[in-house]
């Protein structure tokens, strides 16, 4: 029987199941409980988006509120991970990474290599990404390419509730540092998600839709937008194959290349700014490995090279839309 839950509930369930399974899993972040020291209710927020609601009631001290001090608590999560714990830290918005980036990219990412293979840092940093909430330049970016650039970090960009649950469970069990990017416009979408625990392996792309005419590679929310575009184009007789790589690092290039060998065309849809983005990265790698199969230029559909704007009209232009995706594909045919 189908069990329809939201993305938010799927993440909550993954955390709950992993905390039940392994006492080494602990959670922390700003207001992941909410109400600490206050006179009203505890678990008043359960996270700024309610993703950790109820964990305090079940696990007590294993979930911790933090002062606003990202450098210290993200660093503490990293440090605890090297010392045998499995922390899941919440960095409310990926835009705040500027405050704590050193602990992630110089510390967590490099311990294993710098220490000659001796250290393991099984930390998960959950964070929200994406525009669409009219939240302006400091709360709307999709900065996962910056993390993808760093050797030693694994980066996950789930596209649906089912994906989020399985990928987060894998993230918690994974022995490398993982940046887990939850798109804000996905929080309330619903789908059938199994109640039992399951892990989706990293580096294995999901072919969301089969098609022989053009390959679309998309991440997170952009998978949903690409599916909309693909349905529209199907009515015009263009069959798109939509690939969700699930993780930007590791990246399942093989599945992408195989598809391009079949279709001859590639469109990469990425909500990040275009320079040094996943779109640019995948375009380059496919050109390198499957140039002979390409029958047209690789198209990138991305946000423009500007910060996310506040005004609704501008933000709607900023976010890649199904229309822009169909336009890019039509321009190839």
């Amino acid at each position: 029987m189908a069990r329809i839950i939201t993305f938010r509930e799927a993440v909550n369930e993954a955390l709950l199941q992993e905390m039940e399974r392994d006492p080494k899993v602990i959670a922390m972040g700003e207001d992941v409980i909410g109400g600490s020291g206050a006179k009203g209710e505890m678990d008043a927020w359960g996270g700024p988006f309610g993703f950790t609601k109820g964990l305090y009631g079940k696990f007590g001290d294993r979930i911790m509120d933090t002062p606003i001090t990202e450098s210290a608590f993200i660093g503490a999560a990293v440090g605890a991970a090297v010392c045998g714990m499995r922390p899941v830290a919440e960095l409310m918005y990926i835009d705040f990474m500027g405050v704590c980036f050193d602990q992630i990219f110089n510390q967590a990412a490099k311990f294993k290599y710098m220490f000659g293979g001796k250290a393991e840092t099984p930390v998960v940093i959950r964070t929200s990404i994406g525009a669409g909430l009219r939240a302006a330049s400091h709360h709307s970016q999709s900065l996962y390419p910056i993390f993808t650039h760093i050797p030693g970090l694994k980066v996950v960009v789930p596209s649906s509730p089912y994906e989020a649950k399985g990928l987060l469970i894998q993230a918690v069990r994974d022995n490398d540092p993982v940046i887990f990017c939850e798109h804000k416009s996905l929080h309330y979408i619903q789908e059938d998600v199994p109640e039992g625990s399951y892990a989706i392996p990293f580096g294995e792309a999901n072919i969301v839709r089969d098609g022989g005419d053009v390959t679309i590679v998309a991440f997170g929310l952009m998978v949903q937008k690409s599916m909309e575009a693909a349905s529209k184009l199907a009515k015009e007789g263009i069959q798109c194959e939509v690939i969700d790589p699930r993780t930007t690092s590791p990246l399942d290039l093989e599945t992408i290349v195989e598809s391009v060998e079949k279709t001859g065309y590639l469109v990469v849809v990425d909500e990040s700014n275009p320079r040094c983005s996943m779109a640019a990265d995948i375009s380059a790698q496919v050109s390198d490995q499957a140039f002979g199969s390409l029958r047209g230029p690789v198209k990138m559909v991305t946000a423009p090279h500007c910060p996310p704007p506040f005004s609704d009209v501008l933000e709607d232009l900023y976010i890649p839309s199904p229309n822009k995706i169909t336009e890019a594909i039509r321009s190839l045919k």
Binding site: E30, G34, G35, S36, G37, A38, K39, W45
Partner: peptide
């Protein structure tokens, strides 16, 4: 008194 839902008597 608060940062979001967290009391300053706790966080400071």
């Amino acid at each position: 008194g608060y940062a979001e839902a967290t009391s300053s008597t706790w966080s400071v």
